[in-house]
Design a binder for these strands. Structure first.
Length: 231
DNA sequence: GCATTAACCACAG
DNA sequence: CTGTGGTTAATGC
């Protein structure tokens, strides 16, 4: 965790401002600047922890993160999320204490914004507030979608969907390296590492993907789409 | 019954 | 940490 606050007025110059932050005027950006600290994390470092007091809104400016919650029986990976995005608006605004943890999957940089500053923007700048709501709504829709998929699709369908998600949404490439080991990947899909192993090598043998450890190349996207839609 | 799906276990690189 | 094979339980023709 290295502080990188050598730049003065860094928020003004920031090229990856959130849609919300783009609605802030000059003075507000000054305020943001004063209440904002940028931190970098290495893979597997904890960005914030479930149960801890949360007094910051976190904006991911680069990197990849997994959101994890302690369930009744074991920990559950809720989702994998890519910068740029807000992290944990619900967990910071909705309660004093974090309801889930965020863990970096690769080198990640995050801006910690004081929650009172953030709340002030919401109260005083309706364009900012609207963008925040939009973001929250999109997230909720995504989660609903993921929820039905997990509950109603069989494993092959869930796997196909997840591979398509990594290719289309996260890496924007049909060739990528899984950011998770088999256990975590299984956890994300609500399954077991054994099944994940078996299905991946099945897809590999059928020429749908080419598999080499964590390196995956999607060879037949239509087939994956078909598997996702049919079972 | 019989087939399919997926979890759990054991064992091996 | 992974991959495979066997066993088992649940569910659906």
């Amino acid at each position: 965790m290295n502080k990188t606050n050598e730049n003065i007025k860094k928020c003004h110059k920031c090229l990856i401002k959130s849609n919300a932050a783009n609605k802030l005027n000059f003075t507000e950006l000054d305020e943001l600047d004063e209440s904002c600290v940028q931190v970098t994390f290495k893979a597997s470092e904890i960005i914030f922890k479930q149960g801890a007091l949360s007094s910051n809104i976190i904006y991911l400016s680069s990197g990849l993160v997994k959101i994890v919650i302690d369930g009744p029986n074991r920990e559950q990976i809720l989702k994998v999320i890519k910068a740029p995005c807000y992290l944990g608006i619900p967990t910071t605004v909705g309660d004093k204490i974090n309801h889930y943890s965020a863990i970096a999957l690769e080198k990640t940089t995050a801006c910690f914004v004081d929650v009172s500053t953030f709340k002030n923007f919401i109260k005083l700048n309706s364009d900012f507030a609207y963008e925040v709501i939009l973001d929250l709504c999109k997230n909720e829709l995504d989660q609903f979608q993921r929820c039905v998929n997990l509950v109603q699709l069989q494993m092959h369908g869930r796997m196909a969907k997840q591979l398509l998600f990594f290719a289309n949404e996260i890496y924007c490439s049909d060739e990528f390296e899984l950011p998770l080991n088999r256990n975590d990947f299984a956890n994300l899909l609500c399954s077991s590492r054994e099944i994940v192993s078996k299905i991946l090598s099945e897809f590999n043998n059928e020429g749908i993907i080419s598999l080499n450890g964590k390196k995956i190349k999607i060879l037949d996207k239509e087939k994956l789409q078909f598997i996702y839609q049919n079972g």
